[in-house]
Simulated scan of single mutants.
Amino acid sequence: MKKRLMFLALAAIGLASCNGGFKKLGGGTEYSIADDKGGPSIKEGDFVSFNFSIKNDADSVMQSSYEKGFPQILNMPKVEAGKGNIMEVFTFLSEGDSVVIRQNIDSLVKGKPRPKQLKGKYIVYVIKVDKVIAKGNQTDAVFQTKSQEYVKGIEDKIKAREPIAIKKYIADKKLKVTTTPSGLNYEITKQGTGPLPAPGDSVSIYYTGTFVDGKGFDTNVKGNAVKLKLPINPMNPYKPMNFVPGAPGMIPGFGEAFKLFNKGTKVTLIIPSNLAYGEQGYQSVQPFTPLVFDIEVVDIIHPNPNAPKPVQLPPPVVNPAQQPVRK
């Protein structure tokens, strides 16, 4: 499905090129409507759901809602015409339309140093409008109910796919998992020794976090960061991370899992979204997204009653640089 949608996005670029080029908005922004369904145009206050991909001139996709599986949601703001604002293009679109927008990079940065990923002359956006709910004369209550029902429909479809994705991942990897009553799945690949963590103990781990599609989002193992093509964070010491299982702010799956493993254990965790970031998501983790962690428990540290309490580090999180456009 994702490959088909990305193909349509690329086809839209080609179609725009064949249909007479781009119209100019000003400020280095140009657009070409690749598919015009001819419906009512989007107006201020309307609910809009759309999918998008953002590319540079080197044909590299920098962001894509297709990869995340969740569309962008917005209420159409008031837009001043002729300023080159991308949102102005939406006022020319209707439900079902597709458009290619490109922005001149030099106009965007205005003489400042370019980010390395911005190569060539343009940033190119390919946008497909999936749904428009016109505000019109509807009361706020009625309008909000319709909008929320549409979003819930999307979320219900994504939620229904999650257990299927987890089951497929386990089958494809031929994992022999243990499943706890909460739904946490794990396979121990190397059994450790010694006692399990006691209340108040700290656990020291190496970790690598990926999605079920294999794309990585965080690790404290530098070699894995390189392998997964994650940005190398100069502030990351790439050393074991220490934390107390169940500490405030930790995802429930981590709080449960690290009471089960002793020193030296290597384990793969498959954490369902209800034990991770749930229906809200977090940064580049979309709603109803299961997470996979490959873990090595380096040590279990018993607290010294005479020592000051150690500073607790947060659990591994997604790199903010990978944060997508969110609803």
Rank of each mutant, 00 (worst) to 15 (best):
V129C: 02
V99W: 00
F92P: 01
M76G: 05
I154V: 14
E162W: 03
S98G: 09
G120Y: 03
M87C: 04
K146F: 10
Y150Q: 00
S94G: 14
I123N: 08
A141T: 04
L118P: 06
G84L: 06
E67K: 13
P115H: 00
I133D: 06
Q138I: 05
F143A: 04
D106M: 13
G120V: 00
Q144D: 10
Y122P: 01
I73S: 00
G96N: 10
P71S: 00
G111H: 10
S147F: 03
L74S: 05
I86L: 14
F90L: 07
Q138G: 04
V126S: 02
Q117L: 15
G69T: 11
F143L: 03
E162A: 13
L74M: 11
G153C: 08
K119N: 13
V100W: 11
F92A: 05
N137Y: 11
Q138F: 07
P163K: 12
M76W: 02
E80N: 06
K167S: 13
I133F: 12
D130P: 05
K152A: 09
F92T: 03
Q72G: 07
V100P: 02
K128Y: 13
K119D: 03
A81G: 04
D156K: 11
L118E: 15
Y122I: 01
K152V: 03
K146W: 03
V142S: 04
E95I: 01
K168F: 11
E95D: 10
Q72S: 14
F143S: 06
D97Q: 11
A165H: 05
Q72K: 14
A134V: 09
Y125D: 02
S65K: 01
K121E: 15
V124G: 01
I158E: 06
L74Y: 02
S107G: 07
A165G: 05
K135N: 09
K119G: 02
E162C: 03
P113R: 03
G111E: 11
K168C: 03
K83C: 11
E155N: 15
V89N: 09
K83R: 11
N75E: 14
A141N: 08
Q72I: 14
K78W: 11
Q117F: 15
F70C: 03
Q144E: 08
A160W: 06
I164R: 12
A81V: 09
K121Q: 09
D156C: 10
V99C: 02
N75M: 00
S147D: 00
V126E: 02
A165V: 15
A141D: 12
G69Q: 05
Q103V: 08
D97N: 12
A134C: 06
D140G: 03
N85I: 09
T145W: 11
K116T: 10
V129E: 12
L74T: 02
R114Q: 05
Q117D: 15
D140M: 10
A81H: 09
I164N: 15
P115F: 09
A160G: 09
D130Y: 04
K68T: 11
A160E: 10
K128Q: 05
F143C: 01
K121A: 14
L118M: 15
R114L: 13
Q144H: 06
G153W: 08
D156N: 12
